[in-house]
Amino acid sequence: MAVSPHPAHRRVIVLVAIGLGILASLVGVGLYGLTLAPQPDAGSPTATPTPQDVAPTAPGPTESRVAPHVIRSTTDAEDFARDAAEALITWDTTEFELTDYAQVIVDAGDPSGIESAALASDVRSYFPTTDAWAQLRIYGTRQWLTIDEVFVPTSWNDALAQATEGELLPGTIAYTISGTRHRAGVVGTDAQETSRPIAFTMFIACEPSFNECHLLRLSEVDNPLR
């Protein structure tokens, strides 16, 4: 197995992908092209809630933490998918910086570094822009995920059957996550909360390619495999 990139290198990847807003190539995983979700105007407090908007909302049911949600090491792909989904969607603007949350996802990526830049671009589409994050912080906005279903999509099984030798890493699997994305914060003196359905697919590689599961790519938000 290839040596993992130095953490400083991964930090640069995240800062470039999120801080500067530079999109990497729209590269697929194996036989798939996973396009990135467009970035709407996330600076309006009254915008319709999406994974990139700024709907002011109120404190969520989480206590202060000393670090962002950690994706635990495991060889179980479904457990990894659940943990990674929580880490991807859960954040609190009053606790950590935007790049801190994104770094957790990138650190769980392909240890060879081959997919790191592409994954960082995928991650960017799930987070507010830096300007939007600053506005969300004014409202003390938090976000979290309630998972309803975690399943291997039928289309992935079809793809595996059609894939040629060497096209996908051994142990690669897709899990689609569906559930509810919640946001909460305070506008003036009024606590507000919004929620909306959310669905996405995570492409994960475990044994025998790696001795623990790693995240390769993400589908665009609300355009999962079924």
Rank of each mutant, 00 (worst) to 15 (best):
T75S: 15
G140K: 02
L34E: 12
D83C: 07
V54Y: 00
P45H: 07
T93C: 09
T99L: 06
Q135E: 13
T48A: 12
A37Q: 10
N157I: 08
A191R: 11
V187L: 12
A58Q: 10
E165C: 06
L145E: 07
T48C: 02
L160A: 03
L225M: 15
A118Y: 11
G179F: 04
P153S: 13
Q162T: 10
F127Q: 10
L136R: 14
H214L: 07
P224H: 01
V54H: 07
A120E: 07
D41Q: 10
Y101S: 02
D222K: 00
S121A: 14
L34W: 09
P38G: 06
I18N: 01
D100V: 09
C213K: 05
A81Q: 02
V150K: 01
V29Y: 15
V70G: 03
T172D: 01
A42L: 02
E97A: 14
G113V: 04
Y126M: 07
I18Y: 01
A67R: 11
E207N: 09
W91I: 09
A199G: 12
C213L: 00
L98E: 04
G33V: 14
L88G: 01
W133E: 02
A132W: 00
P59N: 05
R65I: 02
L15E: 13
H6R: 13
V3M: 10
A159N: 08
A55E: 03
Y139W: 11
H6Q: 11
E167K: 08
F127H: 09
I138P: 09
P7N: 09
G43V: 08
V186D: 03
G113E: 00
E115T: 11
A2Y: 05
R65W: 02
V70H: 08
